[in-house]
């Protein structure tokens, strides 16, 4: 269980990163925290020709509030964000979800953007990005572009990032005074979610986002529903997610959790 061979590039600037991606395309991988990529390399599931280490680039480490958004750079580690003093006030949903990401020993290295790039449908950060309606900043040697969270995730481990693009960072909206709730069910503490739900009160009503069920995290907006109307809406949503069986849970169990936890969380944020 040793990695295959690859070149290692310790980037000294973002330009070098983009140059490396441009030259090597799909055979290059960005190495940030390495918490998913290195495991895949050890298992020889991935065989890049070039790893580009971006963790010495100070300019990518930012966690910064700009008006009503928070900008998080590609090099910001999960532990950095957890320790950010403004987190609970600016991004209450993230402050609820982030402790569920892996363990302290992986959050200390793993990055926020790395988790998004990996696009595991059960991971918490993709769910938070979708729930909050954040944006992803992509950049190659020629251009920069922004893409909305819901358009970024294309499937299990698939994103809209082109092979020559770097995820430079993301922005998450600060929703002032928003009521949010988060709950996750996993087999053990720190495991990938069987179902993770995030709820948020919106101007028009309420939003529920679900991870771990469909191929990508999915958010749904409703007016303020209650009673059977809410039950019906949740049931329809649960079925639409296309849950499947695996070793750890059945599709039915996942739908049950979406219905029950969804109802609880919506109740909490609408209270």
């Amino acid at each position: 269980m040793k990695p295959p061979t690859f070149d290692y590039l310790r980037a000294g600037s973002v330009g070098e990163v983009l140059e490396g991606l441009a030259q090597q395309g799909g055979d290059a991988r960005i190495l940030a925290g390495g918490q998913s990529l290195m495991a895949m390399l050890n298992m020889r599931l991935a065989k890049p020709k070039l790893l580009i280490d971006i963790m010495r680039l100070e300019e990518l480490r930012q966690i910064e509030r700009k008006g009503d958004t928070v900008i998080i750079g590609a090099g910001a580690r999960q532990a950095d964000l957890l320790a950010w003093p403004e987190l609970a006030e600016a991004l209450p949903l993230v402050s609820l979800a982030l402790p569920w990401v892996g363990h302290m020993q992986t959050r200390s290295r793993g990055t926020i953007c790395g988790s998004l790039a990996h696009a595991d449908p059960s991971a918490e950060m993709p769910l938070a990005l979708v729930a909050l309606g954040g944006e992803v900043f992509l950049r190659n040697t020629r251009r920069r572009r922004r893409i909305a969270a819901k358009d970024f995730f294309a499937g299990m481990m698939l994103t809209a990032r082109a092979e020559d693009e770097l995820i430079e960072g993301i922005s998450l909206p600060v929703v002032k005074g928003a009521r949010v709730a988060f709950r996750e069910v996993a087999r053990r503490h720190g495991d990938f979610a069987i179902v993770a739900c995030a709820a948020m009160k919106t101007q028009a009503g309420v939003r529920l986002a679900v991870g771990g069920v469909a191929d990508v995290p999915i958010a749904r907006d409703w007016p303020e529903l209650e009673g059977t109307a809410l039950d019906d809406a949740l049931n329809a949503f649960a079925w639409e997610l296309g849950a499947r069986d695996d070793v750890h849970a059945t599709a039915r169990y996942r739908r049950d959790l979406v219905r029950m936890i969804g109802r609880d969380l919506i109740g909490e944020v609408l209270q």
Binding site: A32, Q35, S36, L37, A39, M40, T106, T111, D120, A123
Partner: peptide
């Protein structure tokens, strides 16, 4: 398939 598993995640 891949990796869900990996205890670590980025």
């Amino acid at each position: 398939k891949l990796g869900s598993l990996f205890g670590g995640r980025r």
